[in-house]
């Protein structure tokens, strides 16, 4: 089983330019942990001091904001795409 974490351009200076990461994680939390273990430079940008996903980072599982899905505990299945969006704009 594999899922894909899509990495926006703004994050890529912490990922050696990698635009995505394949992962075998089974939950969103596991996937994010794998991401920051693989690219430690991203760690403090993804989570705050209390270990929560940062206020302005948005995480989407396929088309849905994970906050509608059970947050970081959300289960992943083969082929899922996880998207990180820094500081949602709009309005």
């Amino acid at each position: 089983m594999a899922i894909t974490i899509e990495i926006p351009t703004a994050f890529r200076r912490f990922t050696d330019g990698a635009p995505k990461l394949e992962s075998g994680a089974t939950t969103v939390a596991e996937a994010l942990n794998e991401l920051v273990t693989r690219f430690p430079g991203l760690s403090r940008h993804v989570r705050d001091d209390e270990g929560q996903i940062r206020q302005f980072i948005n995480v989407y599982l396929n088309d849905e904001d994970i906050r509608f899905l059970g947050g970081e505990a959300s289960a992943l299945k083969d082929g899922d795409k996880l998207l990180l969006v820094p500081s949602i704009a709009g309005g």
């Binding site: 926006p8 351009t9 703004a10 998207l83 969006v85 949602i88 704009a89 709009g90 309005g91």
Partner: peptide, 21 residues
């Protein structure tokens, strides 16, 4: 919110001036 997320990705890829992105 779906539209907005897509526009964030479009701004990341295209050389466009998205006024609210």
């Amino acid at each position: 919110d779906h539209v907005n997320r897509l526009c964030t990705q479009i701004a990341d890829r295209f050389q466009w001036g998205l006024v609210n992105v």
